[in-house]
């Protein structure tokens, strides 16, 4: 379970910012350096990818690190957000958020906006490619997804 830090005044104009911990900071360090990397077990007999990241593999308890991924995957599912529901997305509507299943491992999923497409053209199992974009607010770079040609 995670927590959110809120202030109760006016709606925030920036999107929610990540609050990394020691287990997740490798993801954000990679995106800041232009790479999309996911948490992976280093045990040669295991090599499990895992999300959310852990410092020890959930299958074999071996150490993990962050390894670059292709950024290619399929849209498992998605929503079209047409009303303001989350800070930072008050007037930039509609937008599409997908849950992307990455090619590296069945069930390895990453949420992200699907951009440069009209919502009506998005469909489940559509092939997509990740790209990295700065998150408004200054400190973080996030993956977004575009149709893979």
């Amino acid at each position: 379970m995670s927590t959110t830090t809120e202030h109760t005044d006016a709606p925030a104009s920036l999107p929610p910012q990540p609050a990394p911990d020691v287990d997740t900071q490798g993801f954000w360090e990679a995106t800041a350096n232009g790479r999309l990397a996911m948490c992976r077990c280093i045990n040669p007999q295991c090599r499990l990818w895992m999300m959310p990241p852990l410092d020890a593999c959930r299958k074999c308890a071996a150490p993990t690190n962050f390894e670059e991924v292709s950024g290619q995957g399929s849209v498992y599912t998605f929503v079209v957000q047409r009303q303001a529901a989350v800070s930072g997305y008050l007037d930039n509507l509609p937008y599409v958020v997908g849950i992307i299943e990455l090619d590296e491992q069945p069930g390895l999923r990453l949420p992200g906006r699907i951009v440069d497409i009209i919502p009506e053209d998005v469909h489940c199992d559509m092939r997509v490619q990740a790209a990295l974009e700065p998150l408004p607010g200054g400190d973080y770079v996030v993956p977004v997804f575009r149709v893979l040609h």
């Binding site: 830090t5 005044d9 929610p16 989350v86």
Partner: peptide, 15 residues
């Protein structure tokens, strides 16, 4: 509408 920071798993989705 008042969230400024998210941790745990939601740090990947909230942004």
């Amino acid at each position: 509408l008042g969230v400024i920071e998210v941790d745990g798993e939601h740090q990947f989705a909230g942004p």
